[in-house]
C-alpha cells in the first residue's frame, strides 16, 4: 500500500501578518514557514500506520507545489518519516491551480490513499483535497478524524452534519483530515534529520495548462476590537445584566 501526503507551507502560527505593495501581497520578512498543521497531522498518521508491526504500508510520499525556497519544509517532512518527496515547481496561485498541478502529476502514479488537510492556515480554503479528488475521479471522504487499517479493511471516521460516522472504504481514495487523525505531530529526531538529507526529493516541472479560478486582489488587516469592559470577581451579576440589557444576548 502506498500513501501520498500533500503538504502545504504556511506562516508559523505566531507570525504577525502584514501586507506590502499597496496591500496586494504578504510581507514575508521575518516569517517562519512551517508545514500546515493539518498536513503535519496527516503525515504523522501515515507514519504511525507504516510503523505498526506487520504494516501493509510500503511507502509514504509527500508532494508539494511550490518554489525552491520551500525545500526546507519538504526536508522537514522527510525528517519526520516520509520516504521520498516530490516538489512541483510552481508558484501557487489559488487552490484550483494547486489541485490541478497535483492532479496532472499524480494521475500517472499509483497511490492507494491520498491525504490532504481539511484546512490550511493561510487561505483557510478547505479546498485542495476535494478539488484534487474530483480531478482524479477518485472517492473522497472529508473531515476525517481517524484512519485505521484492520486486516484487509480500511476504516475511517468522519464528521457529518449532525454526528459522526465510521465508514469502510475501498482504495484508492482521498481523505481530507482534521484533528483526531493524530493528536500530536511527530517531531523529527536527530536520526531522521540526518537521513532526510539523502532521501530522494524529485523536482517536477509544472504544467502551464492550468489557470486559477480566483484571484486574491488585496488584503486588509481587521480593525481592532473595542476595549474590554471588566467587572470585579464578585460582580458576576452585573455582567449578567450587561449581557441581558446592553448586548441583548441572553
Amino acid at each position: 500500500m502506498k500513501i501520498l501526503v500533500c503538504i502545504s507551507e504556511v506562516p508559523d502560527t505566531t507570525s504577525k501578518i502584514k501586507h506590502i505593495n499597496d496591500n496586494k501581497e504578504l510581507d514575508k520578512t521575518g516569517i517562519q514557514w512551517i508545514i500546515n498543521p493539518w498536513d503535519e497531522l496527516s503525515l504523522t498518521r501515515a507514519i504511525e500506520l507504516k510503523e505498526t508491526p506487520g504494516s501493509k504500508v510500503e511507502s509514504i510520499t509527500v508532494v508539494h507545489v511550490g518554489l525552491q525556497d520551500s525545500e526546507p519544509t519538504i526536508r522537514k517532512a522527510l525528517a519526520m518519516g516520509a520516504d521520498n518527496a516530490i516538489r512541483i515547481d510552481a508558484q501557487p496561485q489559488d487552490a484550483y491551480y494547486v489541485a490541478s498541478q497535483l492532479a496532472k502529476t499524480i494521475a500517472s502514479m499509483d497511490f492507494d490513499i491520498i491525504l490532504t488537510g481539511l484546512d490550511s492556515a493561510d487561505f483557510n480554503g478547505s479546498s485542495v483535497g476535494g478539488m484534487l479528488a474530483q480531478q482524479l475521479d477518485m472517492a473522497s471522504i472529508s473531515a476525517v478524524t481517524a484512519l485505521n487499517l484492520e486486516g484487509e479493511k480500511i476504516l475511517v471516521n468522519r464528521d457529518v452534519s449532525g454526528g459522526t460516522q465510521t465508514l469502510e472504504v475501498q482504495p484508492p481514495f482521498l481523505a481530507t483530515v482534521q484533528k483526531g487523525i493524530a493528536i500530536d505531530p511527530r517531531i523529527p529526531a536527530m536520526r531522521g534529520i540526518m537521513m532526510a538529507r539523502s532521501k530522494p526529493l524529485e523536482v517536477l516541472e509544472a504544467t502551464n495548462e492550468v489557470t486559477p479560478l480566483t484571484e486574491y486582489v488585496s488584503y486588509e488587516v481587521p480593525p481592532p476590537r473595542e476595549a474590554c469592559r471588566k467587572f470585579p470577581e464578585e460582580n458576576a451579576k452585573e455582567l449578567a445584566h450587561a449581557l441581558h440589557n446592553e448586548a441583548k444576548l441572553i
Binding site: 487552490a95 484550483y96 478547505s126 485542495v128 476535494g130 479528488a133 464528521d159 457529518v160
Partner: peptide, 19 residues
C-alpha cells in the same frame, strides 16, 4: 460546515466555477 467543506471543492472542480 462539514457538508459545505465536503462538497464545494469537488463541485468547483467539476463545474470549473471559482470557489
Amino acid at each position: 460546515n462539514t457538508t459545505g467543506k465536503a462538497l464545494t471543492p469537488g463541485l468547483s472542480a467539476k463545474l470549473k466555477a471559482g470557489l
